[in-house]
Simulated scan of single mutants.
Amino acid sequence: MTKRRFSEEEIAGVYRAIAERRDMRHFLPDPVDPTVLKRLLQAAHQAGSVGLMQPWRFIRITDQALRERVHELVEEERLETAKALGERHDEFMKLKVEGILECGELLVVAMPDKREQHVFGRRTLPEMDLASTACAIQNLWLSARAEGLGMGWVSLFDPRALAHLLSMPDGSRPVAILCLGHVESFYAKPMLEMENWAEAQPLEAFVYENSWRDD
């Protein structure tokens, strides 16, 4: 046992946050304490990033009219996604896919322009800027759960339309709309499982040894 190991209680807290994290869609309208929000954003900002490029930007949507416009963009894409799903159209339309108008805080996570200047760790894997940004989002998600707040990641939007709406510079890219706030309760298991949309698979199906394994 290493001397640098956390206490049993601290370790349990880390694993609990991971296990109980949920992609939330149902929120209470109560505001998020600004001090807590700052802690969450600091946790996100402490994420690992390839080449220490820190490719994340967080845009708080505090204007109600702008929040409603973001919701409209998501609704437009929701309808297009339903069409693309074919026979699952009606089933999809019954799902609640976001909580944009209800959540206490609405954040857009984006990557800035001129990311091509960062070569370290990205010469053959340029998508590592997106991977790094995802790490920041996960930090925010887990710390929110530890604080008793829910978060939902919304990806149903046209990136170009959202970038234009938020006056983002050419070359920048929005990658997530995050609904953050108080919840009545956390889902006992992922909502898409509860709604019989999909079923999570066990770890064993995703761990290979030495080479790829045909499933």
Rank of each mutant, 00 (worst) to 15 (best):
A188F: 04
E77F: 09
L165M: 07
E76D: 15
K189H: 09
G99K: 05
L130D: 12
L178C: 11
F92S: 02
E204Q: 15
P34I: 08
H45M: 13
L192C: 03
D63F: 09
L66W: 08
M128D: 10
A176N: 04
H118V: 13
E209M: 08
R78M: 11
E80C: 08
L106K: 04
L166P: 00
T133C: 10
V32W: 04
Y187I: 01
L165G: 04
A136T: 07
L125A: 13
L125S: 12
A205H: 14
E75A: 13
A44H: 03
P112A: 09
S172L: 02
H45T: 13
V50L: 12
R173M: 15
V70P: 02
S155H: 04
T133I: 04
M1I: 11
E80F: 09
L149F: 03
W141H: 01
P29I: 05
L52F: 15
K94W: 06
E204K: 13
A47R: 06
R67N: 06
E77W: 07
D23C: 07
R123Q: 11
L125K: 10
L162S: 00
V97S: 03
A84R: 15
V119Q: 14
I59W: 02
T2L: 12
I18K: 02
L149S: 03
A134Y: 01
T124K: 14
L79H: 12
G51D: 06
G121S: 08
I61D: 01
R60C: 10
N210K: 15
V207E: 09
A136L: 10
R122W: 10
V14A: 01
M53N: 07
M53S: 13
F186G: 06
F6S: 09
V70H: 00
P190Y: 06
M168A: 01
E20W: 02
M53T: 11
L203W: 14
S185K: 13
F120I: 11
L192I: 05
P190R: 05
I137V: 14
R22Y: 02
D215M: 12
T81C: 08
E87V: 09
D63Q: 12
P55A: 09
S155L: 07
V36H: 02
R60Y: 07
